[in-house]
Structures are given as structure tokens and as C-alpha cells.
Amino acid sequence: MIQVKGLSKRFTKEKGLFDLNFEVKRGEVFGYIGPNGAGKSTTIRHLMGFMKPDSGYSSIDGMDCWKNAARIQEKTGYLPGEIVFLEGMTGLGFLSLVQKMRKQESIKRRDELIERFQLDINSPIRKMSKGMKQKVGIIAAFMHAPQVLILDEPTSGLDPLMQRVFIDLILEEKQNNKTILMSSHSFQEIERTCDSAGIIKDGKLVALEDMHLLRRVQRRIFEVKVKSEDDMNHILQSSLVTEVKGDRTIHVTVQGNDQEFVQLLSRCEVQHIDTRPQDLEDIFMHYYDRREVER
């Protein structure tokens, strides 16, 4: 459904997109992950027809994204990464403008979404918080029941409850056989919704995997506090990567070998266990490093 082939766009020597290739099949949810400035939004701009590639092409449903930009929008919903609306409008005013520009008459879906995200539609947009604006953007992207959804960091600004609502919405659309491409910083978000993911860095796609594999390479660090020195030594002697962090406290790195970790802990007296949330950059770094080594 969404196809990117040899897409290149050079801004400077290092900045831009370099020979990007991936495909999202109908009914698939594709997560697009990468650190800031890696080229996620630039890719999406190409898909939306805002930018013309230097070489290569991208297409949606067989139509070239640059040449047929307007026609593609008929079946596409888009949530920009930067949410800025026209000035001097209310939420409802904006949504109805978008509907009219789409020549869409039914407001059933729109009202359903407003209800779901509990949006106060009559407040002026300039008085809205970032999360509220994000909701307006999400509704604008989903309300015409598009076949394809392109979402640039959809959950930024949403509180955890609304993130949940949003993820449910994505899963529901997935059931309806919609094709979704979403970019994100958050691995968890992608993990919960996506079938496959692409990791982009410095304008190059460094990994294109299904979710299982990514989960396997995802590295987590557990902070474990044990009761005695014996237990501590026990852990240190295991094959897991460990790091002493203080008095009977130890950091254990787990990557794909969860089973081993659990078995090891079962032989110790554990006082306290906690995961250290890793930022995405770390996960990437590690992923890239591993790749380099394998090569």
C-alpha cells in the first residue's frame, strides 16, 4: 500500500535521506523509529507530497506521492508532527473546515471521535493546551475513515489515559484492515501496536524488522537488590552482563535471555527489583553497535 523505493533527498552531505527502501502492506501497522533529526519527518513529507525527491520515489496505493498528492489525500489521513492550525478558529470550526474541504458530509464518525477523546470542541484553538491540539489533529486525521493513516509522533502531548485511548483506536483501525505508518520516539508505543518497524538513523534505514526480532534485541536493564553477598556473587558469576551499583545492588542487562534471568533470580533472595527505563537512543545505539560487530 505504501511503497518507498530508493528515496533520496540531499540537504547537505550528511543531512537528508539516502536511498530509503521499505514497504507497508495493506492492513499492516508500520512503526518508524529514530532519534531526533534522523529523517522521520522528512520521509513523511515525501509521502505527503510536500517534497520532491532527488531520486527514487514513494507511492501510496500505486499513486506517485509527488505527482498525485491531492488524489492520494482522498484516502489518506495525516497527523503532522508539528500541530499548528489556522488562526482564530475553534476546534469545531477547524474540523468542519477540513470536512468541507474534503466534501465530506457525515459527521457521525467525527462526533464519535470527539466523544471518545473527550474534546471540548468549542474552545478557541489558541487557548488549547498541546494535548488538546493533538486531539484535534488526531480527529482531523481519522474522521473521514481513510484507508491509509500517516501519523507523525501521534501520542506526543497526550496524557497516559489518552495514549491508551489512542492505542486502542490504532488497534481497532488495524482490525478494519487499515494501513498505518506511525513515527515515534517511544519504543513501547510501537511495540504495542506495530507489526513491523523501521529504524532510521542519519537518513539511512538501518533496520527493517518485524516486531518479534526488535523485541529480541531490545535491551533492558534491571536493578536488582539482593539480601546477601552470596546472592550478589551468584549473580556476578552468571553469564549475564552485570554491573555493581552499590551495596548489594546490581544492574543486570537482559537482552533476549529473559528466561535465564528469571531462573537466576529464583535462586537468589531478592529484596527489590526495578527496571531502568532506557531511552530510545540507547536502544538504537546498542542496536547499531551490534550490527556493526556482526559485520
Binding site: G49, F50, A69, A70, Q73, E74, T76, Y78, E87, M101
Partner: peptide, 20 residues
């Protein structure tokens, strides 16, 4: 202004061409 602020994105995300 619309391009600078980004709200042009919403206008072009509807099936209206840039020319229009």
C-alpha cells in the same frame, strides 16, 4: 505565514491540490 507556521499542512492534507 501558513507555510512558516505549518498550518498549510492541514490544507494540503485534504484532496485539494496546491494549485487550488
Amino acid at each position: 505565514r501558513l507555510v512558516d507556521q505549518g498550518s498549510m499542512a492541514y490544507l494540503l492534507a485534504t484532496p485539494n491540490s496546491r494549485v487550488k
